[in-house]
């Protein structure tokens, strides 16, 4: 009895998902046996992927009852927004976990469209859609059994910090097990950086990449990975692949470049970066091997899907934020 009283109080941990694919939750499981270490220091109070729960269970908690909430996924509807606000209220420390919560992530690319055009596609003209009545989701529907409510779908996809105050960020799509454990250890030991920080390293993926870079890098032609035989030793950027490694925060151990795939940028911008897409774009175009402007234009023009490449994970938090909405009417 006396022993138990002396034992340090376990960390009250909540994990939640919003607009996400589930990968971040899998990443937590990916730490394998170390999950036991987590369980040793933390009471997992909420984890929808593993345990049943109801809204009312959360509502019953006292404010600040949860020490740390790991929130993954972007916010793009009213239910997600509600839960984000609710969990904020209940948690001392809110962590944006994974790229979607941190920067908007892949769902953030929906900011190239808006609710109207997304509904038109999804409930209208995609190949698998059969919807002769043109039915689209409504927040309120009256049926004989009563009123049905479903969450409202927003025009924009938001990062977590765009809707509630966030203390820390853990990037990655998904965060690697090492990143997860670094974050858990930092939380468990209380050895946390200043509020607002990203838990991770300050150097770019290039720092961890083993590939050789020439002294004066140049890009002769842009390619997609499937179009060339990738040299296993040479810098991918110099082979014409739009590798985001130089503009992306490290910490992943340069996983993708290590297996001949260009970095996709999932760990997000560097600490001093204002706009990771602009950083990468201006860097790559600066080293295009072109004699004059027309040549440069033609070579850069060969780049496939520049917006999806440079803002793949960060569009909602970028300076662009979103595409212009179509004019009403």
């Amino acid at each position: 009895m006396g022993e138990e009283l002396k034992a340090p109080k376990k960390i009250q941990l909540a994990m939640y998902w919003a607009a996400s694919c589930g990968g971040c939750d899998m990443a937590v499981l990916d730490v394998n046996e170390k999950i036991l270490d987590i369980a040793a220091v933390a009471d997992i109070r909420l984890w929808p992927i593993a345990m049943d729960y109801k809204y009312k269970d959360i509502e019953k908690w006292a404010d600040g009852e949860i020490d740390v909430c790991l929130f993954n996924g972007a916010v793009r509807n009213s239910e997600q927004l509600h839960l984000a606000r609710l969990l904020r209220q209940k948690s001392k420390v809110m962590v944006a976990f994974g790229s979607c919560a941190s920067f908007g992530g892949i769902p953030g690319l929906a900011n190239l469209h808006c609710k109207k055009t997304i509904f038109e596609a999804v409930y209208g003209y995609t190949a698998s859609t059969v919807n002769p009545e043109g039915t689209t989701p409504q927040t309120h529907t009256h049926v004989p059994e009563g009123d049905l409510h479903i969450p409202e779908f927003f025009d924009d996809v938001y990062s977590l910090a765009q809707v509630i105050p966030v203390e820390y960020y853990v990037p990655g799509c998904p965060p690697t097990p090492e990143t997860v454990m670094t974050a858990v250890n930092a939380i468990a030991t209380g050895n946390l950086p200043p509020v607002g920080s990203t838990i991770g390293i300050s150097k770019a993926v290039c720092d961890e990449c083993k590939r050789t870079k020439s002294d004066k890098p140049g890009i002769v032609e842009f390619h997609r990975p499937q179009e060339i035989f990738v040299d296993a030793e040479k810098c991918l950027l110099e082979q014409g692949l739009t590798c985001m490694g130089s503009a992306t925060r490290g910490g992943c151990g340069s996983l993708c470049p290590g297996v001949n795939m260009p970095c996709r940028g999932c760990y997000g911008p560097m600490p001093n970066s204002l706009d990771v897409g602009a950083d990468a774009l201006s860097a790559m175009t600066s080293i295009v091997d072109a004699a004059e402007e027309g040549d440069a234009r033609a070579k850069v023009g060969k780049m496939v899907d520049p917006l999806g490449t440079f803002y793949r994970f960060t569009l909602p938090v970028s300076m662009l934020r979103r595409a212009a909405r179509p004019l009403q009417g």
Binding site: V205, K216, G250
Partner: peptide, 23 residues
């Protein structure tokens, strides 16, 4: 150069018109 953030990608090496950059 903020040396804490520089990962040595060398992308800057050929752009300086004054030869002020090195690795």
């Amino acid at each position: 150069v903020l040396t804490d953030s520089c990962s040595g990608c060398k992308i800057c090496q050929d752009v300086c018109p004054y030869g002020a950059l090195s690795f």
